[in-house]
Amino acid sequence: MTHLSILDLSPIPSGGTAAQALRDTVDLAKKAEEFGYHRYWLAEHHFTPGVASSSPAVLIALVAAATSRIRVGSGAVQLGHQTPLAVVEQFGTIDALHPGRIDLGLGRSGQRRAEALREPLAPREPKTRRVVDGLLIPEEFSFAALVRSPRFALYASLLQQPGAETPDFADQVDDIIAFLNGTWRSPDGLDVHVVPGEGAALQLWILGSSGGQSAQVAGERGLPFAANYHVSPSNVLEAVEAYRAAFKPSATLAEPHVLVSADVVVAQDDATARELASGYGLWVRSIRSGEGAIPYPSPAEAAAHEWTEEDRRLVADRLDTQFAGTPGAVADKLAVLRDVTGADELLITTITHDHAARVRSHELLAEAWSAR
């Protein structure tokens, strides 16, 4: 059976606080373990009034301490903002206290920000909307305008030490693997042993939104790969195909292993699900307009927003690929996503204004999925 897992951003609802959002994350993690979810991953986002998961290692440690069986990890650590040594020390510390349950998911988000500042995104032919065996692959969204935002450069400068330069992603991943294995050597042959960290039973993952370097690195090093349908749905097939094409068997995996994400809201009836999901478009709009994620709107706040054509273009791909509906209907859509992408696992992210509704959405989905 294909495992379901959860990606949590610790969303802050309008009128809420970061402290309550973090308490809600711990509560949802405990419930997810009861519901039978396989993994519970925490995201890394910065400068977002509507998201509290800015320090995944800290939050992972708290969630791991509050649970006993479910795997807990990062989705993903932004390597552009940290050194491989710091990451291995952080996650090695968590693994020392919760051995064999910790996933270290690595992403290029921070590196892509730095690269875009040095060399602006080149124009490319956008992907057009299509349906592949029942799965919608929407028109590709261009991030070019977001990269030109003054805030984009400001955030990049605040996340790194002055004058710091981010190494190549592949080199950073190789350093992490070497630190964990105890095989790291300096150019002049000096060895370094990371304590805690060396020998940690971490499961290493690479996350990616396209068929670019992340998919290539994951495949060439024989690591599991998480592809992103919920943020970059137009590129999901390209990403998994590139990973599988690059895959080489390793001590970790004999064959490719793919996890695919999806944004989901489940309720007992369609009308309730649509109402619970109604704040999503306004929330995505805030991210893509360069503001950063606003506190998640209530259904009433979402209904009061006057949408322009530009607004709709900003969020169309995300709204069209969100799965909102009854448990059975959403489970059917997830099965299509699994079959078309060949996913071995699915990663579910759900945001609602009301925490109890979010918990119930995950509960209903788990029941429907296990009954298939």
Rank of each mutant, 00 (worst) to 15 (best):
G36W: 10
E89Y: 09
V58A: 11
Q111N: 11
A65G: 11
G105K: 06
H81L: 11
R112A: 12
E89G: 08
T48L: 10
D95C: 10
A65C: 05
A32N: 06
W41L: 10
I102M: 07
E89R: 06
G92L: 02
K30P: 15
Q111A: 10
A64T: 10
G73W: 02
P49F: 02
L42D: 08
T93P: 04
A32E: 10
T67G: 01
Y40I: 01
P49T: 05
E89L: 10
T25N: 04
A29T: 06
Q90S: 05
F47S: 11
Q90I: 00
S55F: 04
D24L: 02
R113T: 12
Y37M: 09
T67K: 05
A29E: 08
T25H: 04
H46R: 03
R108S: 08
H45A: 05
S68K: 14
K30W: 15
Q90D: 02
R69L: 09
G107L: 11
Y37G: 00
E33P: 02
L97S: 12
G110A: 13
W41Y: 05
G50D: 11
A114M: 15
S74W: 06
R108P: 03
G80M: 09
H46W: 02
I94D: 06
Y37A: 08
R101Y: 03
L85W: 06
S68Q: 15
R113D: 13
R71Q: 08
L97F: 15
H98A: 06
T48G: 07
F91D: 02
G110Q: 03
V51M: 13
R69E: 11
D24V: 04
D27F: 12
D103T: 06
E44W: 00
D95F: 05
G110D: 02
S54E: 05
A43Q: 05
R39Y: 09
D24H: 08
L42C: 06
H98G: 05
H81Q: 14
A76L: 10
G50S: 12
R108N: 08
L62V: 09
T93C: 13
H81I: 07
G80D: 11
G36M: 12
G92A: 05
E34M: 05
T25C: 03
S53E: 03
S68L: 07
G75A: 14
P56G: 01
A76D: 03
A96K: 10
Q90W: 03
P56Y: 02
L42E: 00
Y40Q: 02
I94C: 09
P56I: 03
I60M: 13
S68I: 09
R112F: 13
Q78I: 14
V58H: 07
F35R: 08
T83P: 01
V63Q: 04
G80L: 02
T25W: 03
V77H: 00
A65H: 13
H81S: 08
G107P: 00
T25K: 00
D95R: 07
L97Q: 12
A61G: 15
K30Y: 15
A32I: 08
H98D: 04
G80N: 05
E33C: 04
A61E: 08
P84T: 14
V58P: 01
R113E: 14
A76V: 12
G75W: 03
P49Y: 01
R69D: 07
S74M: 06
W41D: 00
S68Y: 11
V51E: 09
